[in-house]
């Protein structure tokens, strides 16, 4: 089995090339993320209609859902990057995986906190041990474990490997989070967005939500690239291109 990828795909693995291309991409993603989040926030918090049952407290969905989706996507990216790093021994993959973990952990915390704030007025409880909430908490612990393992070793490569293995084992949790509301009786409601169906709310409610989700993805890309660039410089600090880069400043 021999698959040929285009040349840019192989160059992606080079830390230097990654550093150069992200310096071009970064400003664009920053602008788009900023615009989308500003538009989405104002639209969602001011112009979108209130819910017939929950009134205005439902508006926290515009933060809660994007952070929750991102916490899971970020985990998948981290696990896939970890697997690529383990199989092909690509440096940049481990750098990506390492940079993902703190971002995902923050997103998971945000999702849990906004969920609790939403839960108190609507359900009547800050926290309930139902399957969705518990599996989300497990996701946060997995992130913490990955962060800890990455930096627990003397050698960078050993830490990367151990963290990648943990990230891969934890992938089991992702379908559990996603389907928890369908497999078991939970207090948490069903998914807001399903790929196969139309969203169960009118367009002036879901369009701002979609804008927020895309905005958060762009924001995630910005943070991820920035973190990965710093990590590239740190790990490649003996190479000539990094030395000459440092000398220029």
């Amino acid at each position: 089995m021999k698959i040929k990828f285009p040349r840019w795909f192989y160059r992606l693995a080079s830390p230097r090339w990654f550093y150069d291309i992200t310096s071009k991409l970064l400003p664009w993603f920053t602008i788009i993320a900023f615009l989308l989040i500003v538009i989405g926030t104002i639209w969602g918090l001011v112009f979108a209609p209130a819910d017939y049952q929950q009134g205005n407290s439902f508006r926290i969905i515009y933060i809660h859902v994007p952070t929750a989706i991102l916490a899971q996507s970020c985990y998948m990216l981290m696990a896939v990057a970890g697997a690529v790093g383990l199989i092909w021994k690509i440096k940049i993959a481990h750098i990506i995986a390492k940079s993902c973990a703190p971002i995902g952990a923050s997103m998971a915390v945000l999702a849990l906190v906004t969920g609790a704030i939403w839960g108190k007025p609507t359900w009547g409880a800050w926290w309930v041990w139902d399957a969705r909430l518990t599996s989300m908490l497990v996701l946060f612990f997995l992130y913490v474990g990955v962060i800890a393992l990455t930096s627990a070793y003397e050698h960078v490569a050993s830490g990367d490997k151990a963290a990648a293995v943990l990230a891969l084992v934890g992938v089991v949790n992702i379908p559990i989070i996603k389907y928890s509301v369908e497999w078991w009786n939970t207090l948490h409601q069903g998914a807001t967005f399903k790929i196969t169906e139309k969203p169960a709310m009118p367009p002036d409610m879901w369009i701002p939500l979609l804008i927020m989700i895309i905005g958060f993805y762009c924001f995630f890309a910005v943070i991820l690239m920035s973190r990965a660039r710093t990590e590239v410089l740190r790990r490649e600090n003996r190479s000539d291109w990094v030395k000459s880069l440092v000398e220029r400043y």
Partner: peptide, 18 residues
């Protein structure tokens, strides 16, 4: 000793619900 309200994912504006 504790009552929790459950809601579904069908959010809608009050006018549409009406």
């Amino acid at each position: 000793d504790e009552v929790l309200a459950k809601h579904d994912e069908n959010y809608m504006p009050p006018e549409i619900a009406e």
